[in-house]
């Protein structure tokens, strides 16, 4: 599959938990995540986000995040990545779930994005 999902949260368990939830409806969608700082503290890490990009088998990614600094670290990781990464300012759980279920169903990106649009909250 060409499109994958990356979940970024300040808390490792939040990132892992969201992935557990969305994998239920997206067994075949490549999903990776980055949670917490390099020291497993609350925060985000550009290095961890870059690793989540590289470890994802898809070459085009949809990225979802929880709060402010996650977005800035995502943007820096995107600038350094060779992959095409789409970043959404949407409600984390709902939008990651929406994207996962639609990608599993083979829905094209434009249609996925149309359904993500009303979930924009930041």
């Amino acid at each position: 599959m060409n499109l994958g999902i990356v979940v970024v949260s300040h808390v490792p368990e939040v990132a892992a938990g969201v992935v557990t939830l969305i994998k239920q409806v997206a067994a075949n969608v490549p999903i990776t995540y980055a949670g917490g700082t390099d020291d497993q503290l609350i925060g985000t890490s550009m290095a961890k986000i870059s690793t989540a990009f590289e470890d994802n088998s898809a070459d085009e990614l949809l990225a979802f995040y929880d709060l402010g600094s996650a977005k800035m670290n995502l943007e820096m990781a995107i600038e350094m990545s060779d992959k095409t990464v789409h970043l959404y300012d949407t409600a984390l759980v709902e939008s990651a779930y929406t994207a996962a279920s639609l990608l599993q169903a083979g829905v094209p990106l434009a249609a996925v994005e149309a359904q993500l649009a009303p979930l924009k909250i930041k």
Binding site: D38, L41, G43, M46, A47, S69, M72, E75
Partner: peptide, 15 residues
Amino acid sequence: LISKVGGAAGPLYGT
């Protein structure tokens, strides 16, 4: 700063 701060200040001061 980018790799060690963890909060918003990391990407900001780093940038």
